[in-house]
């Protein structure tokens, strides 16, 4: 066992391609934190025999793969409602980190809001990593990682903890990205000195996070840009510079903010050209 807070990690799978990729990401953390990994599937009432078999087979396959990598892993099959069963298991087994994939259950529906993963994120008493797999060709080969910092630092230490094994494993180039939001006409009127001042303020905002990364031997580069919409700048950066992974922290935005300015996380998940790792710490 480990000294790291994430002593027990749970990865939820359902036999789908996405969950299997999420499970492979979980090996990374289990290895880095020397944690015990639980791979859990929930057999629900509406599952047909084929889906049930696929979920069960998925567990066997993941256990085999993880054991090859020397991970202490245990497979668990639960029955009942997915959210209730996993929440109960997390509480009973004092799980520290839950890893799950988030995907579009139906065309045109939201990826994240009201998804199983988002419900788990708000319901379970542990930290959650939600993965959205968009580009299987770049999954689990995170050479270029984009870490947007929206607003002030969000759980800098924990976030750096999650980035560290990825950077170590893939020798990744980490870019910490901060967008200073201004109206498009405001941006056009900015002169260099004003931009410099804004960049300085942006650097201050990400300073503590950069320090945490440096403390773990990660030499991340920082990029401060001005833009009219954070979401657009993140997607544009990821598209132009061909990132393999975006690691994004998510907090519970209050309802008014969500209504007024939309949900950037939802928008990023919908439009991302690469995989996204959503972090939610408790």
């Amino acid at each position: 066992m480990t000294d790291h807070p994430f002593k027990k990690i749970l990865v939820a799978v359902d036999g789908s391609f996405h969950c299997n990729v999420a499970a492979r990401y979980s090996y990374l953390f289990a290895q880095a934190f020397h944690s015990k990994l639980f791979v859990v599937t929930v057999i629900t009432k509406d599952m047909n025999e084929k889906a049930e078999k696929s979920a069960t087979y998925s567990i066997t396959r993941i256990i085999d793969e993880a054991r090859v990598s020397g991970i202490d892993i245990e497979g668990v099959i639960l029955k009942g409602d997915v959210i209730e069963a996993i929440t109960r298991f997390v509480k009973e087994n004092k799980i520290d980190l839950l890893i799950s994939s988030t995907r579009r259950p139906q065309k045109e529906r939201r990826y994240f809001v009201k998804s199983v993963t988002s419900s788990l994120m708000s319901g379970v008493p542990c930290s959650v990593i939600a993965l959205r797999i968009s580009h299987p060709g770049r999954s689990l080969r995170s050479k270029k990682v984009l870490v947007p910092v929206i607003g002030d630092g969000y759980r800098d230490k924990e976030r750096a903890d999650i980035i560290s094994p990825i950077a170590d494993r893939f020798n990744s180039n980490i870019t910490v990205f901060h967008v200073i939001e201004l109206s498009s006409s405001g941006i056009k009127r900015l002169e260099k000195l004003e931009k410099d001042k804004l960049t300085e303020s942006g650097e201050k905002k990400i300073a503590s996070f950069m320090k945490e990364l440096r403390g773990r031997g990660i030499h991340a580069s920082e990029k401060i840009v001005t833009g009219s919409k954070v979401r657009d700048e993140i997607i544009s950066e990821a598209s132009h510079h061909k990132y393999d992974l975006i690691i994004l922290g998510t907090t519970k935005r209050n309802i008014i903010k969500r209504v007024v300015s939309g949900n950037p996380v939802e928008e990023i998940l919908r439009d991302t050209p690469c995989d996204v790792m959503l972090l939610h710490f408790k």
Partner: peptide, 11 residues
């Protein structure tokens, strides 16, 4: 939109 071409189209 995840393809390299999709990225050009998006941009």
């Amino acid at each position: 939109m995840s393809t390299e071409f999709g990225k050009i189209a998006r941009l």
